[in-house]
Write a protein that binds this DNA or RNA. Structure first.
Lengths: 336, 336
DNA sequence: CTGAAAGCGCTTACAG
DNA sequence: CTGAAAGCGCTTACAG
């Protein structure tokens, strides 16, 4: 049996209430009492029972973290998520908050997600990646503060932290254009909101430098390496290819490069490629991939800060925060 | 204010105790009462207050997960950990357990780790990777069940789940030997227990096939790519190199390969290499790395199962469980 | 089968 | 500055 506040009270011959106040170093308790209590607490190895504290305070000191199913797969999406998690962990830990994880099992009305949402078990919720809309709706009715991370959500009334995809697409495309490639294509993705952002940045660069928009040069993969591999092969077969590609994820960019190489073309000599994410080992893939580095841990950190303020009812910033990415030049863009 | 058990009681004109029992579908409550209560609960949107349940049950339904500092760095260690986490999450979720994370901030006596350990906030603890010994000692005195994962801990009285490193080293070395390489070196690591395991498997293969042991061919890196890069360059400079290497991690294996290539040697023609881990993108590094695949998510799953049994006081298996890895053949071993 | 009561460990008005 | 008491939301012997 762990020591309780009562044990300390009995030990010192004072009341439990006073012990509690002393432990909180309340100004309404004498210095001597505080000291006596602290000594006794140490001696008796007292540790507060958080559960009891939670019950009376109504605060759980838990943050729910909802991940999309994807994280279970062994892909770079997973790594991406795990880095966001690190950022979250860092800040949450500093503020004495615990994290409760749950997977969005798409509609399955049970499991940890359900528990977290409905059982008063969290003070706020962080949602990573795409999660079904009805979960967000459920959350909204529950009144629990929610912050979306990397969620490419259209509704601007949600609190969200994202990579500035538009800007990322813009700098990548611009980089390729200023390198002198006469035509730049974009390999986008079937995820609509995300695609739209990238497209907007891509178009801005094209317009700014007076390049013609060739609709065929804008394709959409599903997110997998295979999808862009096939798309690339198809374009090659049709003999209609830009001199450079901005691809919206590194994994898809590797698919493009493989498609090119397997058709006997070389990168960047025949076609240049720039990806986005900056997943690990890119220095060692062949050829090393130039990409747009997303500051994912920073996204996590920012989101927790926002959520904590929201929980305390003192967030006054913008609903949507976009973190600026940065170009990382390696070999596939052809820059010397 | 959320609905409580009292609200339901008042609404139905029965006592809170009966409501509680009905909600648990106790056999000692009439079928009609159970039905009435369930309907009322639904109608009033009742959700149990987990905190209160915890206070009375004494069970937190939380599992503490302690990670080493490493996870904050953007390396494959991190990915490795994140995959273990997936395995953990999967099983914990299925059993309605939450996860509480903490970073081992090496001796810093505060933060989430401290909270988790001392505040009755978890029913059991999972420790991933190397954690300082005194934390394990603290845990042991607390009486909370602990399972180590990927911890390469010497003390066989601890509960632990690990990769079978000895076996991994054995199959890798054996593979290289049967491919016909006359000498096989091992690039080990400064982490002692881990190194010893690998060495034992490596030696077993050498002995079994009657290969001579050349002490200079057994080196130790720190874990980083750079460390093995330098070691390899040094061996080349000394003009004393085996025809093949088993390297205990993929990241270090890539360091070896870079060292070889930067010295004008080719892989696997001049020197073959086999790594261990099977981190992502290995198909696309140059040349694609043959490796020993570790089933890391499985390690996580196994560990949670063990911990849950331990918590319930009904674990009767072995203290140490080793998960068997598998050889994944790509290009660097030179197998056709 | 059901109710009244005590209790889990803590906090916090309310008196004094 | 301190004590006695009520209460957070639930569970569970104990009676009946």
């Amino acid at each position: 049996m762990p020591t309780t506040i009562k044990d300390i009270a009995k030990y010192l011959g004072i009341s439990p209430g006073t012990v509690s106040r002393a432990l909180q170093r309340s100004a309404r308790v004498s210095k001597e009492t505080i000291q006596k209590v602290e000594e006794a607490a140490k001696k008796l190895k007292y540790r507060p029972n958080i559960t009891a504290q939670r019950l009376v305070s109504g605060r759980t000191h838990n943050i729910g973290v909802i991940l999309s199913k994807d994280i279970r797969e062994y892909t770079s999406v997973q790594l991406f998520n795990s880095i966001i998690l690190n950022g979250i962990l860092e800040v949450a830990e500093a503020h004495n908050y615990n994290l409760n994880f749950a997977i969005d099992s798409q509609g399955k009305k049970q499991g940890a997600l359900f528990r977290i949402l409905q059982n008063h078990d969290v003070d706020g919720v962080l949602i990573i990646n795409v999660v079904s809309e009805d979960i967000i709706a459920t959350l909204r009715t529950s009144g629990i503060p929610v912050v979306l991370i990397d969620n490419h959500f259209d509704n601007h009334s949600e609190f969200a932290v994202n990579n500035d995809d538009r800007y990322g697409a813009y700098i990548a495309t611009k980089h390729l254009i200023t390198l002198g490639y006469p035509s730049v294509g974009m390999m986008g993705i079937t995820e609509e909101a995300f695609h739209r952002e990238c497209l907007s940045g891509y178009m801005q660069a094209l317009t700014e430098y007076g390049l013609r928009v060739e609709p065929y040069f804008i394709q959409k993969g599903t997110g997998s390496m295979e999808s862009t591999y096939e798309l690339t092969r198809k374009m090659i077969k049709n003999n209609h290819l830009p001199k450079a590609f901005f691809v919206v994820t590194d994994e898809m960019a590797i698919g493009v490069i493989r498609g090119l190489i397997d058709s006997g073309l070389s990168v960047p000599q025949d076609v240049a490629v720039v990806g986005m994410d900056d997943i690990p080992l890119l220095d060692y893939v062949d050829p090393p991939l130039t990409t747009v580095r997303i500051y994912i841990a920073e996204m996590g950190r920012t989101a927790v800060g926002m959520l904590l303020d929201l929980i305390r009812g003192q967030y006054h910033g913008k609903n949507q925060i976009a973190i600026q990415p940065k170009l990382v030049i390696r070999k596939t863009c052809g820059a010397k």
